[in-house]
Design a protein around this nucleic acid. Structure first.
Lengths: 234, 234
DNA sequence: TCACATTTGTCCGTATGTATC
DNA sequence: AGATACATACGGACAAATGTG
């Protein structure tokens, strides 16, 4: 009998040394040995431990940094620290892809609409008391800020993420976070706008209200209008 | 009059040297000056031209490589070459995120189902003759392979991408390609299966048939069954 | 098959910048 | 303000891979 696929991983792999180093570290993160906040040894120390040169370590660190696994801090007490910003880094690549593929805000909004409608539909089936509580809390916080004439942009973004959480599917949470960051990037070209914040809070209030009344279609319709409203403000 | 935002970019920015180098190259790609297939100068030459050390150039190349803008080849006549594999690299990061967030295949399938159904619905509204032609051609190719007892895995993946193209929204194409690659990754743990290929081709045939008959709901139902079928085969 | 040139891959030594104590 | 520990960056050197004659 011959095997179609290799069972044993090759002893001598063709990976470049810096790739080997970065995947070793990644693997430790996946296994939970290294957790966000943990400090990695300094470049020189890593070079000693892996028995490679410092340049090799540096290239591995660049990979881990760009992938969102670590941040590097300069100066005394600095060095590489484990972080989890993978999603933010995915978004950076999406933005690159948007530039290369020349994607318009209309296309983005259309896709966003479809995904968020699907998420809300799913959330309707799976939402729990604790999700509703989180949404209420989020809304109250946003209202508090608005009543003091302050922007509630980040809180409003969080509302959509909370809806994604209510769907009980982590893929949707990832997608929603990606959408939020991309949206945030489009948005940052525009000056801050208190009116937009107020409108968003009102829309969120209506959506939550309809959700509490156990209506399925109405919150989806409201969300659609809300998202189109956002696009038209650009 | 004072300006709210700086008009002149700072002469001395806080970017690290390798970041400056990588974003200079990226910018040339965005502007279309550098196109896929173009060869970049060698590391040493780049170091001279940017007036930095070779180590700096290498770290910049690592970033461009991981982002999917270039590939590097060793040896005579080698060096960095412009490529566009950004989407594949986005997918790699998604896979990392899936590992960190411990995403199950069920969650993935559920999200996939929602997105592909939305795409197909959109495709129904925007599909043109040339899209139908491409789908027919794809199906014919797959059938040809199956009739010779050969696997048509890649061709079958392409069917779904063609559906995304018919939606006329590039974001959907990006998402679909990401889905395909992730699916491919799940799939690769399983041995090749001729029966699965045949079933997929039959499902695609039915979907295309329903599309040609201008039916909206039926192809979506068929797609749902097809995707659930795939999941159950794991 | 064998040298040869080119280019990446890797290591080392050294110098400078930077943040903290 | 000065010492410390770290990242950042440069230049030189050699090994390894790869295509050419």
């Amino acid at each position: 009998m011959t095997l179609e696929k290799p069972v044993f991983t090759p002893i001598k792999n063709n990976k470049r040394a810096f790739e080997e180093v970065s995947s070793r570290v990644k693997s430790l993160i996946f296994k939970g040995v290294l957790k966000p906040g943990d400090k990695l040894p300094s470049e020189g120390e890593l070079a000693k431990q892996f028995n490679v040169g410092r340049q090799t370590v540096r290239e591995a660190l660049r990979i881990l940094e760009l992938s969102g696994f670590i941040k590097v801090q300069k100066g005394f007490g600095g060095g590489p620290v484990i972080k989890n910003t993978i999603l933010a880094n995915i978004t950076d690549l999406f933005l690159d892809a948007f530039q290369v593929e020349k994607i318009s805000i209309e296309e983005f909004t259309e896709a966003r609409l479809m995904i968020e409608k699907a998420i809300l539909n799913k959330a309707f089936d799976n939402i729990e008391e604790q999700d509703l509580g989180a949404l209420k809390e989020n809304l109250a916080k946003a209202m508090g800020l608005v009543s003091k004439d302050q922007l509630a942009t980040d809180v409003n973004f969080e509302f959509h993420t909370l809806l994604a959480r209510a769907s009980k599917n982590a893929v949707f949470v990832i997608l929603e976070k990606a959408i939020n960051t991309i949206h945030h990037n489009f948005r940052s070209r525009k000056s801050a706008d208190l009116g937009a914040t107020q409108k968003a809070v009102q829309a969120h209030e209506k959506i939550l209200d309809a959700l509490l009344k156990k209506e399925r279609e109405k919150p989806i319709d409201l969300l659609e209008r809300h998202i189109l409203d956002i696009q038209n403000s650009y």
